[in-house]
Simulated scan of single mutants.
Amino acid sequence: MTEHTTTHDAEEDARNRDILIYINGELYPRDEAKVSVYDSGFLLGDGMWEGMRLHDGHWAFFDDHMDRFFDSCYAVGLDVGMDRAGIADALRLTAEANGMTSDVHCRLMLTRGTKVKPFQHPSLSRSGPTLVIIMEHSKPAEALQAQGIRLASVPQVRGLPHSQDAKFNSHSKLNCVIACLQAEAAGADEALMLDPHGFVNTTNACNFFIIRKGEVWTSTGDYCMNGVTRAKVIELCRDNGIPVFEKNYSLYEAYSADEAFLTGTFGAQTPVASIDGKAIGTGDRLLTQHIRALYKQAIARDIAVRQAG
């Protein structure tokens, strides 16, 4: 059986067996951290989340993540129950309790809360939101940088905004899970999803870029997650004289790309080895490595500003 990798593969760390998890202001040992089966997140996937990384005691691009998180919650009438300073305090409490300062990944999750009956209507969530913070000691597996991810284009698409807007980082991930299952059935690691018009869009878990003749291409952004790392890569390319285009393109251009990579908070920039069994480029990935170095510098600058503040 073919072994599958993902963009979220991490080095094993025994300390994660004993982490403390934040639930609505309290900290619980990992095996005791639970929410109600009546919670709207469990029942319906009714919630929003953010993935963030801790570097030298500071959350990289914290304001960008909070902008997306609060905008998403507001758009679906989900009361966060605190401001971003309150979120920062909850993050600090959890990190300190776990003795975490760097190489840490956080999943911040907010649902509409516990329902009085197991049905859909939002008015049945009457006890306030459920806020959960899971932090793990987490370093992306170094082997991925050499090995790369194998993608398969799949029939499951990223839909139109008026069906379920892909810009929501919501708990409702069935669309992406189906795509991932289709890719796995095709012998790949993850899915390359198209938009409703058949143009290359994103993967089931990350944003997607290709490099052709020194130019960096990504989708228009109309149907993909408004990724923080995606936006940083586009900004870094523009600031450093690297031609970058948000445009429609097809699998034709993706197959014959010189390089391709995925972006996400966890893996930053993860190279793509193949698409539908077709090797991408020669494996040199020089521009991908340059962009990865620029991104590391951007994190360092962001942390320096926070430390100075």
Rank of each mutant, 00 (worst) to 15 (best):
H4W: 08
T6K: 04
H8T: 15
D18I: 01
L20K: 10
L20T: 02
I21Y: 02
Y22E: 01
I23T: 00
E26V: 01
P29S: 05
S36Q: 06
V37P: 12
F42M: 03
G45S: 11
G45E: 11
H65M: 05
F69M: 10
D71I: 02
D71K: 02
G81Q: 13
G81E: 13
R84L: 07
I87M: 15
D89P: 04
L91E: 05
L93K: 12
T94K: 03
T101W: 06
T101G: 00
H105E: 01
C106A: 15
L110S: 03
T111D: 05
G113A: 00
T114D: 09
K115V: 14
V116R: 01
R126V: 14
R126K: 13
R126P: 01
I133R: 00
E136K: 09
S138K: 07
S138P: 03
L144C: 02
Q145D: 01
A146K: 09
I149M: 11
R150K: 12
V154G: 08
L160G: 03
Q164A: 13
N175G: 13
V177L: 14
A179S: 07
Q182M: 11
A183Y: 02
A183V: 05
A186N: 09
A186M: 14
A186K: 14
E190L: 07
G198S: 08
E215K: 08
S219F: 00
T220S: 01
Y223D: 02
C224Q: 07
T229W: 07
T229K: 01
T229A: 06
R230Q: 07
I234M: 06
C237S: 09
I242K: 03
I242V: 14
P243R: 01
P243T: 02
F245Y: 15
E246K: 13
N248Y: 03
S250I: 05
S250W: 04
E253S: 05
E253A: 04
A254P: 11
A254R: 01
A260N: 06
F266S: 09
V272F: 02
V272N: 00
S274P: 08
I275R: 06
I275F: 02
K278E: 10
K278H: 15
A279L: 04
D284V: 06
I291P: 10
I291T: 03
K296R: 15
A298Y: 06
A300H: 07
A304V: 10
R306C: 12
R306M: 13
A308S: 10
